[in-house]
Amino acid sequence: MKRITFQLRPPASATRSPCDRCRRPSFGGMTCHDCLGKDLADLVQNRGAVLRWEQSLRALVQDERTVLMYAARRSVD
């Protein structure tokens, strides 16, 4: 789950290279979040739970970016 979290961070935070399995862009050329998600879904035998978790994680990342943006605006005032 930590590796998926790492792969779902904002694109501007690091360089991307092809996934070592599917060749889609991923951070550091490691396994991308889609391939890792498939592995996790197979492990827990519940794709729906993994998809819901990934969606909530994406929302968390977006909310964090929004909060930090507003904080940066306040620090300029």
Score class of each variant (00 low, 15 high):
Met1Ser: 11
Met1Phe: 09
Met1Thr: 10
Lys2Ile: 14
Lys2Tyr: 04
Arg3Phe: 06
Arg3Thr: 09
Arg3Glu: 12
Thr5Arg: 15
Thr5Pro: 05
Gln7Cys: 10
Arg9Lys: 15
Pro10Thr: 12
Pro11Tyr: 02
Ala12Phe: 08
Ala12Val: 05
Ser13Arg: 05
Ser13Lys: 03
Ala14Arg: 13
Arg16Ala: 04
Ser17Trp: 10
Pro18Ala: 15
Cys19Thr: 01
Cys19Asn: 05
Asp20Gly: 11
Arg21Val: 12
Arg21Cys: 04
Arg23Leu: 11
Arg23Thr: 11
Arg24Ser: 03
Ser26Phe: 00
Gly29Cys: 05
Gly29His: 03
Met30Ala: 14
Thr31Ile: 12
Cys32Asp: 00
His33Asp: 03
His33Ile: 00
Asp34Met: 14
Asp34Arg: 15
Leu36Phe: 04
Leu36Ser: 03
Leu36Val: 05
Gly37Ala: 14
Gly37Tyr: 08
Leu40Met: 12
Ala41Val: 09
Asp42Ser: 13
Leu43Gln: 06
Val44Met: 04
Val44Lys: 02
Gln45Lys: 15
Gln45Ser: 12
Gln45Leu: 14
Asn46Met: 07
Asn46Pro: 03
Arg47Gln: 11
Gly48His: 12
Ala49Gln: 13
Arg52Trp: 06
Glu54Ser: 06
Gln55Phe: 07
Ser56Ala: 06
Leu57Pro: 00
Arg58Leu: 13
Val61Leu: 04
Gln62Asp: 07
Gln62His: 07
Gln62Asn: 03
Gln62Ile: 02
Glu64Cys: 06
Glu64Leu: 15
Arg65Pro: 01
Thr66Pro: 03
Leu68Gly: 00
Met69Ser: 13
Ala72Leu: 12
Ala72Tyr: 07
Arg73Tyr: 06
Arg74Leu: 13
Ser75Cys: 06
Ser75Tyr: 02
Ser75Gln: 13
Val76Gly: 09
Asp77Ile: 10
Asp77Tyr: 02
